[in-house]
Design a protein around this nucleic acid. Structure first.
Length: 139
DNA sequence: GCCAACGTTGGC
DNA sequence: GCCAACGTTGGC
């Protein structure tokens, strides 16, 4: 099973906001980046991911899961953009800040560290295990 | 609030 | 198809 990371500004849409949507989750719409879209196209129902708060907090704060595979973005009329639906699983026991991730030698290759602008990122199995360890998540 | 990094657009 | 200009993101 592949793993992912989703970024969101908590001012706009926070992990708590996602949790409030419950089991049905939320369409991850508004993504207007081809790389990010391609990652969403590759997602399978049940894939787990991390939820990262950008700008404010700058930390991995929760665990999420894909509940609906790729489909047209309802906020896009052009037919270009697609997205998945995700739901909150549970918050992590201990948020992992960007500064901590940058300071962790084993995470230097992580997209979060090396390509901060990509809003939907793949997470390798190795990175997943390390972040689970650092956040106190039972994978 | 600034600015660097990156992606996208459009003229040639 | 190249590349300059522009807009956006996001860390600081």
């Amino acid at each position: 099973m592949a793993h992912w990371l989703y970024k969101s500004e908590p001012d706009v849409f926070s992990y708590d906001d996602l949790a409030a949507k419950g089991e049905a989750g939320q369409e991850w719409d508004g993504v207007r980046n081809y790389q990010a879209r391609n990652h969403m196209r590759a997602m399978k129902r049940g894939d787990r991911g991390f939820f990262y708060h950008s700008n404010e907090g700058k930390a991995i704060v929760g665990l999420v899961e894909v509940v609906r595979e790729v489909h047209p973005d309802s906020t896009d009329d052009s037919g270009t953009w697609e997205c998945v639906d995700i739901r909150a699983v549970r918050p992590v026991a201990r948020p992992l800040t960007l500064a901590e991730a940058k300071a962790e030698p084993r995470l230097q290759g992580m997209a979060l560290v090396s390509n901060s602008r990509l809003s939907v990122q793949p997470v390798t199995d190795a990175e997943w295990a390390i972040v689970c360890e650092l956040t106190g998540v039972d994978p």
